[in-house]
Write a protein that binds this DNA or RNA. Structure first.
Lengths: 233, 233
DNA sequence: AAGCTTGCTTGACTCACATCAAGGTGAGAA
DNA sequence: TTCTCACCTTGATGTGAGTCAAGCAAGCTT
């Protein structure tokens, strides 16, 4: 953990400037925020913060992946979101007003995160309606995403959730998806057990719809998959 | 549908003024919004808008209940939220930017809704950071709620969802809950089938934890229910 | 090389909840 | 009164996905 102005490299800096949370700022405002920002370099598996913790910073990921998840006393874990480079999280701190934060945050692989003082960012918000609008747009997007998430969980089954994920996933080349996380993480993301994911992948393979090889999933018949989703959605 | 300034009764007006969306407004701003607002008097079962529709208004419920729900082609319905008097909805319009609205809205019983011009409200937002903060606070609360909703759906079973609902429900007197909607609506709200709800209620009754009579649910042992929830939560 | 660990797969079993189907009850209509 | 319709209940049966347990392969360590 170090002060941001000093140690951030150029690529990270330009990433920060582009982040929706910051991109409507005047250069001086941006600098001011950076001066009190802290940089966290996290090793794989290292916690950034824990559920229930009281936070004073909002975060922007500049390297690696951050996994946000919830935990039940019996140890069940549900991944709420995987934060990738350029995205912010924990903006809720701005309005939660002293309440505790609702998720855990841990680095999936080595990651770098910039923490921005929430109180100070609030001042910035108060100073600029444009920045407010940026943030509101962001929140509204997140809400919409959460809404469709609730949808998927209630209206649809595990296969459907996997299918929509597959069809929206960033393809490496044409119809090939390269998993950047182990399969059990994907499973949790989709709220299914690793065993079940394995079975579904197997079934889809037998139906000649996909081909799985290690970390790679190839969509053999994208059209067919799309109609499967369409029929049920 | 009529112009709001003319036909709104006094109680509805004061309700509007208290709504989080509007309560930071200057009196003139409030009046200006009202002048272009429209009032919808809906009969039971009447649609306010449909999923996929392009909206230009945000809404505040001043009477009755509005049910927000999603529909699949095969007719499955999932109630996303029940809006009661004093609450706003469809604020997402402000940031969705010409996209279609993600839910249906229909009156559960006779209801009155005030529709406020979204573009004009945006102007108001631009004019006042305080109003922005109000709205952001509102959105952040909703997001938090959605998050716990995803939680309940994935981490917990139907009985648990009913229990948490029971414990949070507005009690009529002491430990008596009076359902203001038919049971199958509650079922959908909890993402379970009416039959299953019926069975769960029966089981809890047999365990002497609750007593059900028509529209009334009495919590016979609130403490026991709370520990049940706590054990699993 | 032998042993451990981690991630993945597979099979047998279980269980919560859905589905299908058949009543029951009360309110309002004819 | 009787019909009908909406709402609710109950039983029989089906099924998707979780649980438990065993085993395999690849990559480590020592």
């Amino acid at each position: 953990m170090n002060y941001a102005g000093m140690i951030l490299t150029e690529p990270s800096l330009s990433l920060l400037k582009q982040a929706p949370l910051l991109n409507a700022l005047e250069p001086e405002q941006f600098k001011a925020l950076l001066n009190t920002a802290t940089v966290y370099d996290l090793a794989e598996g290292e916690f950034l913060f824990q559920q229930g913790q009281r936070l004073e910073q909002i975060f922007i990921c500049t390297e690696g992946f951050i996994k946000l998840f919830r935990l039940t006393p019996n140890g069940d874990e549900k991944i709420v979101e995987i934060i990738s480079v350029g995205n912010s999280f924990a903006e809720a701190v701005l309005f939660l007003g002293g309440q505790q934060y609702p998720v855990h945050a841990v680095a999936l692989k080595a990651a770098q995160v910039v923490g921005i003082n929430a109180a100070q960012y609030q001042q910035t918000l108060r100073a600029s309606v444009d920045v407010c609008f940026n943030l509101m747009g962001l929140m509204s997007k997140r809400m919409h995403w959460l809404l469709t998430e609730v949808d998927r969980l209630t209206l649809h089954n595990a296969t459907f959730r996997l299918l929509t994920w597959l069809l929206e996933a960033p393809t490496h080349s044409a119809d090939t998806i390269l998993l950047d996380v182990p399969k059990h993480v994907l499973a949790s993301r989709l709220s299914i057990k690793p065993e079940t994911l394995s079975r579904i992948l197997k079934r889809l393979s037998e139906q000649q719809l996909i081909r799985v090889e290690e970390q790679m999933i190839e969509l053999l018949d994208r059209a067919a998959l799309q109609t499967m989703v369409a029929l049920e959605a």
